[in-house]
């Protein structure tokens, strides 16, 4: 598997290389090296376990930004059928960093309609010019709202996939009122009378993430993050230098388990060891199972209860003292 290796994974890579050499030697020289190979395999597993079981917040941020990590369209292809992309906000343009459309979701042998919305990053320079590194403009948020309102009209559940460093900070984005686009989405998502699931699959960059993130259930992949500010931005403000991003990542409590503890997210979707990019198929299977579970759980609520529960979910977030 040719993957861009992260710094902290290098011991794993080294052992994998040694193991391959050992196997090659055994096969070429026709000698029995089974004991050595078994020992090496065991050591590899232990090393993997040692590294992947206690990833720091900053290491997870690096995994969440890995260019081989599955993106929105990868999950769409693996989990759904018949995705029909719909384009444009009907006002200004079509944002390629924010996509959406109808799809079918096969759950327990039955096929049901869903509306998918997701932020899409690119893997190379050319793709990223088109996708703007997953940073949507106002028209992206307005397209997302248009499609969500369409889902509301036809009583179709909405699933949103969050993967953005943030909404685009640019002159035109400001001129077309990115703040208002996000604000309106946040307000309107609290009123849509269909089940909404949101899942953070990679980067959950602040307001740009929340702009498609108000939901009945918010899920997050094990190595994804969701934060009020990027660790680099926080480090630049508090420590006066972006190199302190690892400290900021810890302090901000932006990892999946911390978010679950503070009830920001409702469930954590497990990833293959080392991250979703090590086994995208398994990652998609895990996500699919989680989406089925939560969508079924939401099916039992009436429209009124759904809205009340969604209101209560957000109403309860915040920690303060009352004297």
């Amino acid at each position: 598997m040719k993957l861009y290796t992260l710094e902290f994974e290098k011991p794993v890579l080294q052992l994998q290389k040694q193991l391959e050499e050992l196997r090659a030697k055994a096969s070429a020289e026709k000698i029995d090296l089974n004991d050595e190979i078994n020992a090496m395999e065991k050591k590899l597993e232990e090393t993997k376990q040692g590294i992947y079981s206690k990833l720091s917040a900053w290491q997870r941020v690096q995994i969440s930004r890995h260019t081989k990590r599955p993106y929105f369209l990868d999950y769409v292809a693996q989990i759904f059928e018949g995705f029909t992309e719909l384009h444009g906000d009907r006002r200004f343009g079509d944002d390629h960093a924010m996509l959406g459309g109808f799809a079918f979701f096969k759950t327990n042998g039955k096929s049901r309609k869903v509306m998918l919305i997701g932020q899409q990053k690119g893997r190379d320079v050319k793709e990223n010019v088109k996708r703007n590194f997953g940073m949507a403009h106002p028209e992206g948020y307005r397209k997302a709202l248009r499609l969500m309102q369409l889902a509301h009209k036809f009583n179709v559940p909405i699933i949103t996939f969050i993967d953005t460093p943030g909404a685009y900070p640019g002159v035109q984005a400001e001129e077309r009122h990115i703040a208002e686009a996000i604000a309106v989405n946040i307000r309107e998502m609290s009123t849509l009378e269909v089940p909404i699931l949101a899942v953070v699959i990679g980067e959950g960059g602040s307001g740009g993430a929340l702009g498609i993130g108000v939901a009945d259930r918010v899920l997050i992949l094990e190595n994804a993050y969701y934060s009020v500010i990027s660790p680099e931005g926080c480090a630049a403000i508090l420590w006066k230098d972006r190199v302190h991003a690892p400290k900021a990542a810890e302090a901000l409590k932006m990892s999946a388990r911390d978010l679950l503890a503070h009830k920001i997210v409702d469930d954590v979707v497990p990833e293959p060891p080392g991250g979703a990019h090590h086994d995208p198929e398994l990652a998609a299977q895990n996500l699919k199972a989680s989406l089925i579970k939560h969508l079924h759980a939401l099916d039992k609520f009436s429209k009124g209860d759904l809205l009340d529960n969604r209101y209560t979910r957000y109403r309860g977030i915040g920690e303060y003292a009352e004297s």
Binding site: S190, L210, V214, K253, Y314, I317, E319
Partner: peptide, 26 residues
């Protein structure tokens, strides 16, 4: 903007206040 020291608890206040305004508007 949002208060960094309270992390995601701060960001979620955007959703909380906006949802309350939706009910007020309704």
């Amino acid at each position: 903007g949002a208060r960094m020291y309270e992390g995601m608890l701060s960001l979620m206040q955007m959703a909380k206040t906006s949802a309350a305004l939706a009910r007020h508007a309704k």
